[in-house]
Nucleic acid binder design. Structure first.
Length: 738
RNA sequence: GGGUCCAUAGCUCAGCGGCAGAGCGUUCGAUUCACAUUCGAAAGGCCGAUGGUUCAAAUCCAUCUGGACCCACCA
């Protein structure tokens, strides 16, 4: 058995070993030895976007999850780790549109909806297979027979079913709301997808009748006919709420109405402002409170409407200087603050500047009353989301994120779920355009005027048989992601999988999508199944470079996990992502660190070779009969203590400690001390002492290989093959040493 | 404005009431040995500051300083 080649070269083993695992079928829980008597352990892989390639953020999640799943598999659980991909509507559509424009100078409108979606599907097909190959390179023991995609037939059925059920329960409604509109991508964007940028802009103090108002956006001021101040502001006490004032404004004389509202900060500027409810969230709220008129100033392309008079049709950014010029001419500018810092909202996915607009959108109400199946009382989605974490049904690790979660829930508003994209789940709502002309009775006629919600595709109005059209919008990506723990298991059918594997045990993901995704899964599962989606949420941090900066293409500091795995092996890459990675904390990563763990893989290889070549005549059956010296017994007891400690650490998600302890013990205790001390004994003439040493070394190595396997599956499996007694067995399904 | 967290060796961090620790890096030395992807050794710390609780504080409490992040968003 001395065919160990001299340094360990990961490349020679990894693909081959992955193939062996695949052939064994053990990634599928039902194929595990004695599967019937195993208790299930489930994790669903957070689906990577179907557009991308694997990056270091994926690698860290894969390393943690594969470690957990391998640990629980060896501990005798019926482990299911289910893979999939997310269609990532906005990101994917944007990518394909860019490609299309670059290659053919066409927009999606040139192709039409159907043809465009064909292109997207082709693109997604290709990326999905790329990322799948890359996930395998990392050694992930995922059940590929259950692979899912958020846009496949089964998941689409789940999405429509969920929509219809929520609609029927009165949770989904349509309404005019102010939303974040991205004029570049021509869609709404959720609050969570916005990034704020600071920009130095002139701040204008404008004369508004007897008042002075401040604004950084004079181009939105055309329609302003309400002037708002704090009710307790002494300076303006002579003006009464509702009082009208005639004054000269940009486009000529207007009549303004005084509004008193507590949202105004008397300290800011002059303590008086005018409002633009159509294009500002705060102004919209004020207008709603006092039932004021709202007027649109800017269209969906970002151009000024006829209300702007001479400036109509001009893009806001181009019109602004001209408008300032006109204000100057009219003597309406009192002063300009040149050093004002203005914050502008950017769509973090596509980069367009957000222009708030009032639009008709679909919403999920988080505060509508509904009947809770599980607690048998009236509740709201918001209360339900809070309760399951509060009462410990769901644990979020690290604990401090529970506080952050509660804080978020407290400020939660209704969730806007419609997007004006083409790629995604089309909203399963139809409108009768035949105006109910064939309706048989008054009841049906009335139904024709309302939205028709259906799980099945409709081709004609079910009430009058007339023509219909489907809502053009698609659903927010997170709507389908929210169903992920159970849509992957067969929902809406009551499948065996759903029965057996849900709720899942652990959801492992980055803290950056706690609100986007984790919270929404809790919401969806709570309503649709009356259950929780998972027992434990484990949140990892961001991977940063050695200087602690975010990795980005422009900084050129990206560490590509695939290049690293190619160079140093997947095991080394994985270990570098686990050690020093405490939950919820960001992790600093450098190539040097990975190189260090490559050396460790080689250490395992070499020390194992030494032990294996010196214990060749052993078989587990005979080792039992060999008497151990006191010292060797003590060593084995130490290893047992270590095993217990490691087990506890992994059970409590302290992978960073478990990995480091095992690493340290293997290298600096086992290799540096135990093996060194055993060398003379192996060459000695005292047979009893010699065999005791052999047994001790053999058993220690076997235990350490098992302890290391979840962290470094390839090298440990490669060594396992070299142990004479193991022949065709796989370390992957060996019993955990406790 | 509201919230969360961090500060310990040059760097990355562990320790979270009982003698200040690890990895990497640095310096010096070794090398027919399973392994130069190696081994041995050394240097390196007022545990951010101040005050308090305690027999005892890096650890608990308060305040401050510096930093990171999240949420809200100010016309």
């Amino acid at each position: 058995m001395s065919d160990f080649s001299k340094p360990y070269t990961a490349k020679e083993h990894e693909d081959r070993i992955y193939e062996r695992w695949m052939e064994s079928g053990y990634f599928t829980p039902e194929n595990l030895p004695d599967a019937k008597n195993r208790k299930p352990f489930t994790m669903i892989l957070p689906p990577p976007n179907a557009t991308g390639t694997l990056h270091i953020g994926h690698a860290v999640m894969l390393a943690i999850q594969d470690t957990l799943i391998r640990f629980w598999r060896m501990r005798g659980r019926k482990t299911l780790w289910l893979p999939g991909a997310d269609h990532a509507a906005i990101a994917t559509q944007e990518k394909v549109e860019k490609e299309l424009y670059k290659k053919e100078k066409k927009t999606r409108h040139d192709l039409g909806r159907e043809e465009f979606l064909h292109r997207v599907d082709a693109f997604v097909e290709e990326s999905r297979s790329t990322i799948k190959t890359q996930i395998r390179k990392m050694g992930c023991s995922l059940d590929w027979t259950r692979e899912a995609f958020t846009m496949d037939a089964q998941r689409s059925l789940a999405v429509r079913t969920a929509f219809v059920r929520m609609y029927d329960a009165g949770l989904i409604y349509r309404g005019h709301r102010i939303v974040n509109w991205d004029p570049k991508l021509q869609t709404t964007v959720s609050d969570d997808e916005i990034e704020w940028m600071e920009e130095k802009t002139p701040f204008y103090y404008l004369k508004y009748g007897p008042f002075t108002i401040g604004t950084a956006r004079p181009e939105t001021k055309f329609g302003d006919k309400y002037v708002v101040m704090h009710p307790d502001d002494e300076r303006y006490k002579q003006y009464k709420h509702g009082q009208t004032i005639d004054l000269e404004w940009i486009g000529g004389p207007i009549t303004a109405t005084v509004i008193k509202d507590r949202a105004i900060d008397p300290e800011f500027g002059t303590g008086v402002m005018t409002i633009t409810p159509w294009h500002d969230t705060a102004d919209f709220d004020i207008a709603e409170r006092h039932k004021l008129n709202k007027e649109q100033i800017i269209d969906l392309q970002g151009k000024l409407l006829p209300i702007a008079g001479a400036f109509a049709g001009e893009h806001v950014t181009k019109a602004r200087p001209k408008i300032v010029e006109k204000l100057k001419e009219k003597g309406l500018i009192e002063k300009v603050d040149e050093n004002y810092i203005h914050r502008i909202a950017i769509d973090s996915r596509g980069g367009g500047t957000i222009e708030p607009q009032i639009l008709e959108q679909w919403f999920i109400s988080v505060s509508a009353k509904l009947w809770s199946v599980s607690s048998n009382e009236e509740t709201t989605l918001k209360e339900m989301m809070q309760r399951v974490v509060e009462n410990g049904q769901i644990t979020i690790l690290p604990k401090r994120f529970e506080k952050i979660y509660f804080h978020w829930i407290n400020n939660l508003r209704d969730w806007c779920i419609s997007r004006q994209l083409w790629y995604g789940h089309r909203i399963p709502v139809w409108y009768c355009v035949a105006c109910g002309k064939n309706a048989k009775n008054e009841q049906d006629l009335q139904k024709c005027t309302r939205p028709i919600v259906s799980i099945e595709d409709l081709t004609a109005c079910p009430h009058c048989g007339g023509a219909i059209r489907q809502d053009p919008d698609t659903l927010d990506t997170w709507f389908s992601s929210g169903l992920w723990t159970f849509s992957t298991l067969g929902y809406p059918e009551k499948t065996n999988d759903l029965e057996q594997y849900h709720p899942t045990d652990v959801l492992e993901t980055g803290y950056d999508i706690l609100f986007f995704w984790v919270a929404r899964m809790i919401l969806m599962t709570g309503f649709l199944l009356g259950d929780i989606p998972f027992h434990t949420v484990y949140l990892h941090g961001l991977v940063r470079d050695a200087q602690g900066r975010k990795m980005s293409k422009s900084l050129g500091n990206i560490i590509d996990p695939l290049t690293m795995s190619e160079k140093y092996g997947a095991d080394a890459t994985r270990l570098s992502l686990l050690i020093g990675n405490a939950p919820g904390n960001d992790l600093k990563m450098s190539e040097d660190k990975i190189r260090g763990y490559r050396n460790f893989a080689n250490k395992i290889w070499n020390a194992s070779r030494f032990v294996i070549t010196n214990t060749e005549e052993f078989s587990p059956a005979t080792t039992e009969k060999i008497n151990l010296t006191l010292r060797d017994k003590k060593i084995l007891a130490d290893v047992e203590r270590l095993s217990k400690e490691i087990t506890k650490d992994i059970e409590n998600f302290r992978l960073y400690l478990a990995a480091e302890k095992t690493y340290h013990y293997f290298w600096h205790t086992f290799a540096d001390n135990i093996i060194e001390e055993a060398k003379p004994r192996l060459k000695g003439t005292d047979t009893a002492d010699k065999t005791s040493a052999e047994r001790m070394l053999y058993e220690t190595l076997i235990t350490l290989l098992k302890l290391l396997h979840p962290f470094m599956p390839f090298v440990t499996e490669a060594v396992w093959e070299k142990v004479p007694n193991n022949k065709d067995s796989l370390l992957m399904v060996e019993k955990w040493p406790v």
